[in-house]
């Protein structure tokens, strides 16, 4: 049973369905072992946005406050999409490479271990 309710066959209203976001979809991005940012960021993005635009125009706005951000060698970054290893395609739209509504993108930077090497 999907809920214990006094009303038979009770269905909840899905508040975060993609239709409610005015043409955008929500994408979350987190930098592994870099907890200067307490949590992954949430961005409302057009599904047609390219990965390149996400990485170079959207992400720096929030991530660039980190002292290591400028040092990232993006060719050596490994990505995960919704829990699986992922190879992003720079010029392809998010929706066309499986980055959907409420997908989580994680990236890790093996040579950068956070402020003082402490995962910060």
């Amino acid at each position: 049973m999907a809920v214990k309710a006094i009303t038979p066959d009770y269905k909840g209203e899905v508040l975060d369905k993609v239709e409610n976001f005015g043409g955008n979809q929500v994408v979350y991005v987190g930098w592994d072992h870099h907890l200067m940012f307490c949590a992954p960021f949430a961005y409302p993005l057009p599904p047609e946005m390219t990965f390149e635009a996400l990485r170079t125009q959207v992400m720096p706005e929030t991530f660039s406050l980190h002292p290591e951000f400028e040092q990232i060698d993006w060719d050596n970054v490994s990505w995960m999409l919704d829990g699986n290893p992922f190879t992003p395609q720079a010029d392809v739209a998010l929706k066309d490479q499986g980055i959907g509504h409420k997908s989580v993108l994680r990236f890790s930077t093996p040579d950068l271990n956070g402020y003082q090497g402490a995962g910060v």
């Binding site: 987190g30 949590a39 992954p40 949430a42 929030t62 994680r106």
Partner: peptide, 29 residues
């Protein structure tokens, strides 16, 4: 002051600030 808005847990609604207890610098997803 951080920019942007954080991802939240659907159940407790707290920003995703908790970490793996066997790897305390890794966000628990």
């Amino acid at each position: 002051y951080t920019k942007g808005l954080p991802q939240l847990c659907t159940t407790c609604q707290i920003p995703m600030l908790f970490t793996e207890m066997d790897d305390p610098t890794q966000t628990s997803y």
